[in-house]
Design a protein around this nucleic acid. Sequence first.
RNA 1: UGAGCUGAUUGAACAGUCGCGGGCGUAAGGCGAAAGCCUGCGCGUGAGGAAAGUCCGGGCUCCGCAGGGCAGGGUGCCGGGUAGUUCCCGGUGAAGGCGACUUCAAGGAUAGUGCAACAGAAAUAUACCGCCUGCCUUCAAGGCAGGUAAGGAUGGAACGGCGAGGUAAGAGCUCACCAGCGGACUGGUGACAGUCCGGCUCUGUAAACCCCAUCUGGAGCAACACCGUGGAGGGACAUAUGUGUGGCCCGCACGUCCCAGGGAGGUGGCUUGAGCCGGUCAGAAAUGGCCGGCCUGGAUAGAUGACUGUUCACGACAGAACCCGGCUUACAGAUCAGCUCAGGAA
Length: 121
Amino acid sequence: MKQYTKLRFNYEFARVYRKGRRVSGRVLTMHYLRRPNRGLRTGVTVSRRLKGAVKRNRFKRLIRESFRLLKPDLESGYDIIIMGRADGSIPDYETVRQDMIRLFKRVGISCAETQNRCEEE
RNA sequence: UGAGCUGAUUGAACAGUCGCGGGCGUAAGGCGAAAGCCUGCGCGUGAGGAAAGUCCGGGCUCCGCAGGGCAGGGUGCCGGGUAGUUCCCGGUGAAGGCGACUUCAAGGAUAGUGCAACAGAAAUAUACCGCCUGCCUUCAAGGCAGGUAAGGAUGGAACGGCGAGGUAAGAGCUCACCAGCGGACUGGUGACAGUCCGGCUCUGUAAACCCCAUCUGGAGCAACACCGUGGAGGGACAUAUGUGUGGCCCGCACGUCCCAGGGAGGUGGCUUGAGCCGGUCAGAAAUGGCCGGCCUGGAUAGAUGACUGUUCACGACAGAACCCGGCUUACAGAUCAGCUCAGGAA
């Protein structure tokens, strides 16, 4: 059974940044920390260098939507921070989704069945 | 029809499938002694005109505070509106526009100080050139003493402008008109306007110091209130008994309770309010009174999204974070009302 909760407190974020590892894609950067026998927890952030609350909000929504559809195929036992990279403009949904799939494969927390699906695409 | 002015409204729509925050209801499931909590299901609801900048004014909260003064800061034509303002409405004055209309930090420069670059002889007091008079020298002309702000030149600004008289040449020296200054009267609640009289002219700058009038405690929801594991502090009780482990002894491990305080974290503050909509009355308007109806975000890593289809004018600026009232700034467009100018027609 898979559990999913949000990262909530500043120290939880700080722990992932400090102790975890980092991978970067085209539009996303992912910090992750392995915590065996725990649930899957995520936090979403966008750099404040992306100006305007509306743009940051939109980027976060795209990240959350992509994650929502991908999370049933992920393994538990990780704290993940998905960070939108600031380059002045926000990408479209499909770019975010493909970037997220690529990063999860590199991290290696996708299940086998998901990898099959990814290869089909 | 074209060009323009002012005010107001609006800020893509619909359907389907997944998904999120809050609320209400649950005869379903789980946990619990219970209150209730979690999951699921159902219903309904969920960003803006600027939510922004944080420039003013409040509410609310805590701190400070006998009374008075100084300093500092804000405001600055008049009347009204308002909880209140630097806001709004109406007016006065000035500037701009053919006009509708727009713009205005609009008190005081005879309280004082400062500044006014460059140019120019001289910037608040002046004689460079010129003009005129007298004396001296003398071929032309020049020198010395004095008068003079009409003319030249400089400048944003030069003892108010313009005309006439007057004079050696000139000058408000005198007069008419205009501007400005002071006073009286009339009208107006008032800013001010009009008329008359007087003397005779005093540069600009106060978003320079300043003077005058008037207002003014400080910090902010990360305010503040409550709960509060651990650690550290104080007190009480125990000094080898007690508790735990264990069938018991040995052994091993541990002080127990209370108090205030309050770092993480949680709960409240947190949305019914100077509220919105409609009608009516008062008012020139801002606005106010009365009547009826409505409840419309409350998150806390922070909720409105993704995909598909249809339509159009192909979608700008942009996201609540305690709440209101204004101001300012950003903005693709669309709609409505009133008005002005130009041309044309009747």
